[in-house]
Write a protein that binds this DNA or RNA. Structure first.
Lengths: 320, 320
DNA sequence: TTGAAAGCGCTAACAG
DNA sequence: CTGTTAGCGCTTTCAA
């Protein structure tokens, strides 16, 4: 195979342990020796064998992330945050898409566990019990989910939703309907809390374009003047349904989304939605995982969200 | 740590080598012995330590993929294809986003090389030389890029573009402009070939929403009646620019995209674009990589593309 | 068909 | 500050 630590040791005229130390515990080696080793390392293009290292340290230097749907741009954004922060620490990232299936999710976490130091679980659909069980076996950080005793980073959905409601009320809307996401999604319940009981509820629907389409059809029958979608993808689906039925947004019906994915700003009318600090959440998740790996305590962190008002909402016509 | 091969051997009353063989070379062990070992394995929940295994076999059982922009839904779709096929073979997938930066790209491939058996490189911006150099060090499969002597899977951009041109001509358009993507992108040149010299060229622009916005502004000055965008994201940006300038699509100007990302169908007007077999490309890439790892030859595979006609194109008004 | 033994490349005591 | 030594958990000759 490639060049080993022994080759470096020989050429630098030191023992293998000195090479090892020069690389991973610089303080323990005389500066001139270290420099000599480093030169040889560079010259030979030596790269430590990670398998050998992790065999002895028990650490892989990798981390995993599983998301429910890679096609929802919300999740690639989180991935980016994770990759960026992990990369800074020389950590590589495994990813998996569970396709909104809880069984797959648990399976993936278990499979990953064997080859990573810890995993980030996004918008999990698993039960508290299963999550606790997984967290016992593997350092685990949740994103947008709270489970007692497990680290997590939250984007404040409840507050985001309250901002939506406040906005809609300030526009004079009296009757609005919530196009609900998956029952198993913790975020869905959290968002409902933010509604403070003021919205009519329908659902649950699939948290994607098709789900929004279906939801809009039902929502229309309620006579509501505003639709609050579980997420942007559903809102986009609703927009599409309404457009194809010649219902004008926002003139006849106001629509709001959640997540502020890229397309929320691109569609027309541009979507009023709640901005989520996705990349930052990814960063923080990696930090929490790092703490965990150093024996630190579990932590919960909450990141603020902010309503972004665009063109899909306006004053309720009757309230003028 | 966890349960080791020795624990299994002890409890099954055989040597460690027998356990090893029972697991990875079933033919070499008496059936009854094998069954006994397997029972113990299941009972103990034994999972072979991958680091130890790969230390000796030199294989990691992992593969890597690097894409230029995770925010472009085209790439998550490819990722999915890769993950799916890799998963079937028990292979895990590392991902990285190079953020359209060639240096980062090369760096990422090199970093990954240390811990994967091979890597898939999507829409690479690197020079042929660099790619060949990387391919020499690591089994490599390219997606949407051809480099002599390197395996690759192509989605037939040239043909896709020809279909666009044919469509536009059939609608009576005489003057159309190509909103070009990055100069370093092989796909960009390939798509230009499909133009057969019949479009005016402007660019290059960033292959995203913002780039499309900018491009549309310039394209407008050409007096062309149809805009052909390098990809859907740019087309979406162009649509947005035109809408905000009260130019009606497709009444005044026709617009086409490329890729058929999810949002191409969602926006309004829905985008006429070229559908790319992204997931399949991911699958095939994994297959080619597997062949390579088994000592097979490099291969080039081309997958067909198909024009999807939606609402953003129509007959040229002057040609009625 | 099975077992014993020799490492894969590296880190981590333990001496010096 | 540096070297020696003993493995980490597994696969793979080589013998039996």
């Amino acid at each position: 195979m490639a060049v080993t630590i022994r080759d470096v040791a020989r050429q630098a005229q030191v023992s293998v342990s000195t090479v090892s130390r020069a690389l991973s515990a610089p303080g323990l080696v005389k500066e001139t020796t270290r420099q000599r080793v480093l030169d040889v390392v560079a010259g030979l293009g030596y790269q430590p064998n990670r398998a050998a290292r992790s065999l002895i340290t028990g650490r892989t230097g990798n981390l995993g992330i599983v998301v429910p749907d890679l096609e929802n741009p919300f999740f690639p954004a989180v991935l980016r945050g994770v990759q960026t922060r992990a990369g800074e620490a020389g950590t590589s990232v495994f990813f998996c898409d569970s396709r909104e299936c809880p069984e797959t999710e648990a399976e993936l976490v278990r499979t990953m566990a064997a080859q990573v130091d810890g995993v980030v679980l996004c918008a999990s659909l698993l039960s508290d019990e299963t999550i606790i069980e997984l967290a016992t076996a593997t350092p685990l950080v949740l994103i947008n989910r709270i489970v007692p005793g497990v680290s997590s980073v939250l984007m404040d959905s409840a507050s985001g939703m309250e901002q939506v409601v406040t906005h809609l009320e300030s526009l004079g809307h009296k009757h609005y309907v919530y196009l609900g996401g998956p029952d198993a999604a913790w975020s869905n319940h959290r968002r409902m809390q933010g509604l403070r009981g003021r919205a009519q509820l329908i659902g649950s629907f699939e948290p994607n374009f098709g789900g929004g389409h279906t939801a809009a059809e039902q929502a229309l029958k309620t006579g509501a003047t505003a639709f609050i979608a579980y997420n942007d993808l559903m809102a986009l689906g609703a927009l599409s349904y309404l457009a194809s039925n010649d219902i004008k947004v926002p003139q006849q019906i106001s629509v709001t989304g959640f997540d502020d994915i890229l397309y929320a700003a691109m569609c027309s009318p541009a979507l009023t939605t709640v901005h989520m600090p996705t990349e930052e959440a990814g960063n923080v998740a990696v930090d929490l995982l790092a703490n965990l790996l150093e024996g630190g305590p579990t932590e919960q962190r909450e990141l603020p969200t902010k309503l972004v008002i665009r063109a899909s909402t306006r004053k309720h016509p009757m309230s003028a």
